[in-house]
Amino acid sequence: MKDENIYLALVTILAPLSIAAIGGATGIYAPLQHETVELRQWMTSREFIDLFAISRLAPGPGSMLAPIIGWNVAGFGGALLATVALYLPSSLLCFGAARVWNRYRGTPWHRAIEAGLSPVAAGLIFSGILGLLRLGQTGPLSWFTVVLVAGLLMWRPKLHPLLLIGCGALAFFLLHVVAP
């Protein structure tokens, strides 16, 4: 399976996805599956789904699926290359935009854009939450947890996230043991 061009293939698959992924990482899964499973047959569909599940288990941005696939097809170099290919193009673009944006700080238009974009961000955050709710994979217990955590954090904003995540993991684990 391993040949010289596998690195090149990783780059040519992931670099365009970096720029095409508008609206977050969720957009890259379908094309990534198409390329790695159907076109190049690096893995079976089942393996892809397993790797996807694993990538969600690991900490960090959801798109850590890229290094996992890179690791599976070409080892450490593949993982590194896959990560760089997926992140570098969009990062450079974002850096350029941030630089232009911050250069005009203090001007009336900059203040207007900042004040005008904040509510759009709020609308996008709520849309994201609704989108996850729509997936329908989460049960009533999950929704209770979402409300509980949000309420706790409104009350105590500096409560440490790791503590909450640990409690959430433990609670769901115990429930699994008690009532599988």
Binding site: T138, L141, V149, L164, G168, F172
Partner: peptide, 9 residues
């Protein structure tokens, strides 16, 4: 599931 629910909260 528990971890994802907390993160969503």
């Amino acid at each position: 599931e528990g971890v994802a629910a907390v993160a969503l909260g």
